[in-house]
């Protein structure tokens, strides 16, 4: 019942928005050149279903594989930085410097490294983009621990790895999931924009540029819609994962922090 309540408002808002979109366009812009009507986009989607589906498979693979690699690398770096002071002094400034690079601008260069038609370059862009928020947030969660919780564990003569397992990792979970939610949409953007410059030609990115080049804007929009679907599915998956991984966290939100 509560879940329905949470969903009903955005659904109503969405229906109204699309209704307005459709209505306004059918009144003022019948040829759909600037902005196709929702009905035209859905039409293009059905008409080009095979190509769109193939695009979703290719781009979806780039997104998911890049996301997973970025997450794994980010977590490993965060654990290293938390564990070893020298690692912290080496990796953290490096990561900050790397993050200052507009990574998406490297897409053409990565194509040169990994081959123009290889999806590897697109994956590399996604990994580089996902890594940073995961690394920084997870590190923060691993280190910003209640001092008395650490002292308590030390008073029990707990080993360092035990403290990491019992205190630092659970403490880092909310930080990690915040970064992960951010990363899913970032990963889709990164993959599609990277695909504009190279990679497999049956991915969503080239479909958008080619359709737009041929003024087939309804098809371009259909591909954008497919990209949106990838992002939405991933975001929802993260929400579910968050619930499973941190059942206590919804309690904290429900009861506030009135300690």
């Amino acid at each position: 019942m509560n879940a329905l309540k949470g969903f009903s408002a955005p659904i109503v808002a969405g229906v109204v928005l699309f209704g307005l979109w459709q209505g306004v366009l059918s009144l003022f812009n019948p040829d759909g050149f600037v902005l196709p009507a929702p009905s035209e986009i859905v039409g293009a989607l059905i008409e080009n279903w095979d190509e769109v589906y193939q695009g979703v498979r290719i781009t979806g693979f780039v997104v998911v594989s890049g996301l997973i690699a970025g997450i794994v690398l980010g977590i490993i770096a965060a654990l290293l930085v938390t564990r070893f002071r020298t690692a912290n002094e080496t990796i953290t400034p490096l990561a900050v410097a790397v993050n200052a690079i507009p990574i998406i601008a490297l897409a053409p260069i990565f194509n040169n490294w990994f081959g123009l038609t290889s999806p590897r370059s697109n994956q590399a862009i996604v990994v580089a983009l996902v890594f940073f928020p995961i690394f920084i947030n997870t590190t923060r969660g691993l280190t910003q621990v209640d001092r008395s919780q650490i002292e308590l564990m030390e008073s029990y003569a707990a080993s360092r790895s035990r403290i990491t397992r019992e205190v630092r990792i659970p403490n880092a979970m909310p930080f990690f999931f915040t970064a992960l939610k951010l990363s899913t949409s970032l990963a889709v953007i990164a993959a599609i924009v990277a695909e504009y410059f190279g990679g497999r030609q049956d991915a969503l990115g080239p479909m958008i540029t080619q359709s737009a080049g041929l003024t087939r804007y309804d098809e371009a929009w259909a591909a954008v819609l497919a990209g949106t679907a990838i992002g939405a599915v991933l975001y929802f998956a993260v929400l579910v994962l968050e619930r499973v991984a941190m059942p206590w966290h919804s309690l904290i939100r429900a009861h506030g922090d009135d300690k």
């Binding site: 209640d146 659970p170 979970m173 309690l251 904290i252």
Partner: peptide, 13 residues
């Protein structure tokens, strides 16, 4: 020995 602090220091998880 056992120890207790000003903040209860309980683990939310």
């Amino acid at each position: 020995y056992g120890m207790a602090f000003q903040t209860a220091g309980l683990f939310d998880w």
